[in-house]
Structure formats: C-alpha cells, structure tokens
Design a protein around this nucleic acid. Structure first.
Length: 601
DNA sequence: TTTAGGG
DNA sequence: CCCTAAA
C-alpha cells in the first residue's frame, strides 16, 4: 500500500515556481488517495494524511531556494490568495482538511456530472468561500479564470457527457488557420484564438485569456517555451518579432519551468482536478477540461526531486529542528546540537508532555504543528516491528532511524569533536534510561533467571533482524543499542565459551557459542566477561559483609558460576603469563582450561 | 576486523 | 554499553 501522492509530490515541490501550487493541490491528493494493492484508490487514513502532509510540509517549509519564486508569484496573485494559501497548511487540522477536501470532492463530482460549466466550476467558488483556508488558491484561481471564461461562453457548455472533455466538443479544427505563411495572433479575437488553438492542439479550449492563448499557441507552433506575449508573428515555426519588438513575459525569460500566472493557476487547477479524477477512480482523465494538456506537452514536465534534493531537504529539516531543540538542553547551548537534531521526539518525549508541538515556519509564518507528525509513522514500523521482540520500546526510535540514516553524513561531520559528542550522548543516555525503564520492563525480555525461556527466546530471535534493527542506529551513532540484560543462560554460555576457546577469543566465542544470540557482539562478550570477573573477585567481600543495603538490579549470578569465572580467569592469566607472546602456549593453555572446565560443571 | 581497555 | 587505539 502506497500513498499515491508521494511520487507526484516530488514533482510538485521540486520547482520553486510550483510551490504555492503544490500547497494548494497537494493536500487534496495526499489526504484523499491511497493506492491499494490492486491499484484501486481509497481515501487515505488520517495517519497517512498526516504522514504525507508533513512530507509536504517539509518540502515546502524548507524549500528555501524557492522563496524568490514565491515572491515572484505574489506579484501576480492577489495577496489574499497567497495568504489563505499559507494559512491553509498551517492553520487547519488534518481532519478538517480531510473533511473539506471531501466536500470539494463531492462538489467536484457534481460538477463533473454537470459539465455545462466546466470552467465555471461553481462548487469551487462555494468552497473557496466556505473553506477560506484550505486550498483556496485553487479555487480562487479557478474562479478568477472562470469569470473570464464566462464572459464568452463556449460550445462546451452543452456537453452532457459526464466527462467534460472540451476536445470532443465543438467544431472540427480549422487547420487552414495554420497553413498561412505567417500567423499573427495579435489581431485575433478570443474566439479566433480558440480556433487557432483548436487547430494547433487538436483540442478546444475555452480559455478567454488572449495572452495566454497566444502564448500557448505560439508555444505549440514553435515547440518552444520562449514565447512572447504579443507583438510577434509565427513564421515557419519561428517567433518573429513584429515592429515593436518582442516582449517576453517576465517569468518566461528565466526558465521554461517558470510559468505565467495564468498557466500557473491553470496547472494548479489541473492538479487539483487530477486528484479528483483519481479519487473517483475514473480511469479516464478529465484533466483536460480544466487544463490544456499542452501544459505537459509543450512545457517542461515538472521533475521529480532528486534523491539528493530530498536528502538536502531532510537535512535542512533536521538542522532546523535541532536549532529549535537545542535550547531544551541545558548543557547544549554552546555545543553542537548533535543529539537533538536526530532524535527530537525522544528529547521532547522525555520532557513529559503528552502532545507536543514544534515551531515551524511556513511561508514566513511561525506556526505550531504537532511534533510527532514529522516523524515517519507507518513505513519503518511495518518492516521493523514485526520481527522485533522489543518493537514497542524501539518504536519511537525506529521512526527516527530513517531520518538518522538520511542525515548520517551530516552526523559524521558533526562528530568531528567526539568529546562533545560524547557529552551529548551521556545526556541523552540519561534521558533515555527514563524511557527504557518502562520499555524494558514491559518488554518480553526474560529477566535473568529463566535460562530455558531465555534460550528459546534467543534462538527464536532471528539474527539478521536483530542486526538490522541494531545496526541502523549504529550507523548514526546516535542511539544506544537496546539494552538487553544478560540472562543466566547467556552467562553460562559465555563461561563455557571462555572455557572452551579461551578468554580473549571473543569473536570465536561469539561465533560458536552465541550463534543464537546475535545481539551479543564480541565486544559485549568481552565486557560481560570483564564484569563477571569483577563480580567474581568482589563477591567474597560482599558476602562477608552480608549487608545488602540495596536490592540488586538483577538477580545475582550464582556463586558457582562466579567461582568458575574466577578459576577460568586464573587459568587464563596463567596461560597468558606463561608466554604471552607464544600463541602455541596459549592454545595449549586453552586446552587445559577446557579440561578443567568440563569437569567442573 | 578483532581485541583491549577506558569511560 | 560506547568509544577508540592498536594490531
């Protein structure tokens, strides 16, 4: 199951000039449609809505380079349009968005069934009135275009087909219009321009905007994006300036991807409409009736964002978050916000509030958005949780893992000063312990004393899965390995391994004796052995005192094991001191150990 | 990569 | 457990 919008989204957010448009139209997609396995589309759940809404937000919010484009757009669109658009994304709750989108869906459905006024699209006006916040841009733009359209109505009005495809309506193309040597669009009326348009694209349009029509026609005829608005003739598929010289539209001068306001709004409308069509499971696109498909044929199709683009976005995102969150750390003020950048949820979560928000900037406004929504909600969980016995406890972190991976490069850069990083991590660990106390407790970890169960648990645990889970955060160096208390069984295995292969041959022990405990690394074994050693040496004194002021966190290791640890240690020390440099002796000593060990237990 | 050792 | 140096 995949939300259909994701890929489309990429196309929208990519170009700065599309920014506002995507804001207006994307919520429609993302909040409404999800592709099922069989290809059908179903309304997205709120979770998905939130998920993608914030993906969108990320793209938009952090899409700094597009600011100039936005401002460019603002020069064309009424300020109110942009304002409502901005408020759209930050102001509404998701459910509100859904509701209103559904409303629009319905109204558009009606509209689709009533193709008499395709461009008029009255529902959109209604909606733009009643949903002043959501997707107002689309509707407003649409409405403004409609006004022009209505001034001179088109034949399409009488088409009863539920698919208001203008191309099927009206007269046949008059190709003679295009056979002239020199085509001058300037003197033509709207209707004539529409005729030319029909001849050019084989499809009727009811757009009444002369300059738009001229430009589109010119673009179609010349196969070029660089088309002036007026004062030109088309000669031999070339733009030839008329006397006054060519006046290129500002937007077109820079890039073909930058569109005129008309086209801009038009595309937006098309996108919105496309969404509707898909939501309706209408295989046949009705896009055309609002959007000349030449948009895609003559002008560049919006690129999907490159992988790097996405990464940069997420990096930016994370960096911004870190900046905000750094203040939450007492000691971090002058440190680099390594930790907080990657694990915002955790940090905030440990502060104890139930529902958190973070400040976000949207179009220059500071807004508060639910914090959790920025984390991925579904995808990582799907893959990881199923295999993880401690999935619940790891959930929060797993959601961040992807982000961590994405920003691993950045992280490494920041790890330049490891000491500081260490400090940060210590802080983090302390905070994490708070959480882990709960999670470990409710995890299905068998504490200490049930070797059999622990054994089976360990063996059931699939190695690769554990590795997968544990290795991800490892890469980012941000997350501690999930703490797993050593079970008695593990300790026994370790002791036995040391007895068999010798202390220090941790990798071997791990490979041969801990095959079923994949989460124990050789370093873990070494550390545990060290701890066992310590315990075995310290135990006598503790027992002598017999005064246990505190209840031990874990069940005590049976003294028999400890004493054996001690013995093994002595043997190892002997073997080591006998000839530390002689490997053969070591091997020999190991064999001795083995013999002794086997007789012991 | 593995081991040893400090934190 | 983490991290690093050294091998």
């Amino acid at each position: 199951m995949e939300v259909v919008a994701q890929e489309e989204n990429g196309e929208h957010v990519n170009n700065g000039s599309e920014l506002v448009k995507s804001r207006a139209s994307d919520p429609l997609v993302y909040q409404l449609v999800r592709v099922e396995g069989d290809g059908t589309l179903v309304p997205a759940t709120e979770d998905e809505v939130m998920q993608f809404g914030h993906l969108l937000d990320d793209g938009k919010v952090e899409d700094l380079p597009s600011v100039e484009d936005i401002s460019k757009v603002e020069t064309f669109l009424p300020a109110s349009v942009l304002c409502t658009d901005k408020s759209n994304l930050k102001g509404l709750s998701q459910s509100e968005n859904i509701m209103k989108d559904e409303q629009k869906l319905h109204t558009n459905l009606e509209d689709a069934n009533n193709p008499n006024k395709p461009d008029k699209n009255p529902p959109s006006q209604d909606i733009s009135a009643e949903t002043t916040q959501n997707s107002t841009v689309v509707n407003t733009a649409q409405a403004s275009e409609t006004e022009k359209t209505d001034a001179t109505s088109t034949p399409a009005i009488d088409n009863p087909s539920p698919i208001p495809d203008m191309s099927t309506v009206g007269s046949k193309p008059n190709f003679s219009l295009l056979t002239k040597d020199e085509i001058c669009l300037d003197g033509l009326s709207i209707r004539e321009l529409q005729e030319v348009f029909l001849a050019t694209f084989g499809r009727r349009t009811n757009v009444k905007d002369k300059s738009w029509l001229k430009r589109r026609i010119a673009m179609g005829l010349t196969k070029s994006c660089k088309v002036p608005t007026s004062n030109f003739v088309i000669k031999d598929k070339q733009i030839v300036p008329k006397e006054g010289g060519v006046q290129y539209e500002e937007n077109l001068q820079e890039s073909c991807e930058t569109e005129s306001p008309q086209e801009f709004t038009r595309k937006r409308v098309r996108n919105a409409n496309w969404n509707f069509e898909n939501t309706l499971r209408d295989g046949k696109s009705r896009v055309e009736f609002l959007s000349p498909e030449e948009d895609s044929s003559t002008s560049k199709r919006m690129r999907k964002p490159t992988k790097r683009y996405i990464e940069e976005l997420s990096s930016l995102d994370n960096r911004e978050e870190s900046m905000r969150l750094t203040s939450l750390f007492v000691r971090n003020n002058h440190d680099r916000p390594v930790r907080s950048r990657v694990r915002p949820n955790r940090e905030i979560g440990s502060l104890g509030a139930a529902f958190r928000t973070r400040n976000d900037s949207l179009g220059g406004f500071q807004v508060q958005v639910p914090f959790a929504s920025r984390a991925r909600r579904c995808r990582p969980r799907k893959n990881l949780v199923a295999f993880m016995p401690h999935a619940d406890s790891l959930l929060v972190e797993d959601e961040n893992i992807m982000q961590e991976v994405e920003t691993e490069k950045l992280t490494r850069t920041m790890r330049a000063s490891t000491h500081k990083n260490r400090q940060l991590k210590d802080i983090a660990n302390k905070q994490e312990k708070e959480n882990q106390e709960e999670t470990v407790a409710e995890s299905d970890e068998v504490p200490e004393i049930l070797p059999d169960e622990a054994q089976s648990e360990g063996e059931n645990a699939n190695d690769s899965n554990h590795d997968e889970c544990e290795s991800l955060p490892k890469g980012s160096h941000m997350r501690r390995k999930h703490h797993r208390a050593w079970t008695l069984c593990e300790v026994l295995k370790l002791v036995e391994g040391v007895a068999r292969y010798g202390a220090g041959r941790w990798s071997e022990i791990r490979r041969l004796s801990f095959a079923s405990y994949s989460y124990r690394t050789s370093v873990d074994l070494k550390d545990k052995w060290r701890n066992l050693l310590k315990a075995s040496m310290a135990q006598p004194s503790v027992e002598k005192e017999g005064k246990h002021t505190r209840k031990p966190a874990s069940l005590p290791i049976p003294t028999s094991i400890l004493s054996r640890v001690r013995e093994l240690a002595e043997l190892h020390a002997q073997a080591g001191s006998e000839s530390p440099t002689n490997k053969f002796t070591q091997v020999h000593g190991r064999k001795v150990v083995q013999g002794k060990g086997s007789g012991f237990l």
